[in-house]
Design a protein around this nucleic acid. Structure first.
Length: 122
DNA sequence: AGCCTGACGCTGG
DNA sequence: GCCAGCGCCAGGC
C-alpha cells in the first residue's frame, strides 16, 4: 500500500513542477522529471500528462529539443501549438525554439522561492 | 512473474 | 534532418 502512496506523491510532484513552468516558457519531459526528483522519469511525466486535468499547463511540456511530443496528425498536437502560440511561443514545424522559450529555472525560483514545491514531500 | 506498451531521451547511421 | 536501436521507469494484463 505504501507503494501506492509513493506513486501518488510522485505524480503530485510532477504536477507541481509542471504547474510551475512560467507562462510563455516550455520545459522538456526530462527536465520536468529531473526537477521532480526523478532523473530518468521522463516517461512518468508522459503518464501523468495523459491522466492530468486540463487545468494543468500541459502544453508547456515538450519533448527534447523543443519537439512537440504527440504526433503531428493528432488533434492534441494542434491544440498544444495553439495554446503555445496564444502565449507568444512560436512553433516551427512542430518544434519550439528552446533557446528562446526554454524554461531556465533558477531565475524565477532564485528570486521568488527556490523549488519549495520540489522539497516538502517525500 | 513475465510480457507489452508508452504525451521519453540519447547515440549512431 | 529523419529513422532505427536501445535504455529507462511504471502500469496494465
Amino acid at each position: 500500500m505504501k507503494d501506492r502512496l509513493q506513486a501518488l506523491a510522485r505524480d503530485a510532484r510532477i504536477r507541481q513542477v509542471i504547474a510551475a513552468i512560467p507562462y510563455g516558457c516550455v520545459a522538456s519531459y526530462g527536465q520536468v522529471a529531473a526537477l521532480a526528483g526523478l532523473p530518468r522519469g521522463a516517461r512518468l511525466v508522459g503518464r501523468v500528462l495523459r491522466h492530468a486535468s486540463p487545468a494543468l499547463p500541459w502544453h508547456r511540456v515538450v519533448a527534447a529539443g523543443g519537439r512537440i511530443a504527440v504526433a503531428r496528425s493528432s488533434p492534441v498536437h494542434d491544440e498544444q501549438v495553439a495554446r503555445l502560440h496564444a502565449e507568444g511561443v512560436a512553433c516551427r514545424d512542430g518544434k519550439v525554439d528552446v533557446a528562446r522559450h526554454g524554461w531556465r529555472p533558477g531565475l524565477d525560483e532564485l528570486l521568488w522561492g527556490p523549488l519549495a514545491f520540489a522539497e516538502g514531500e517525500d
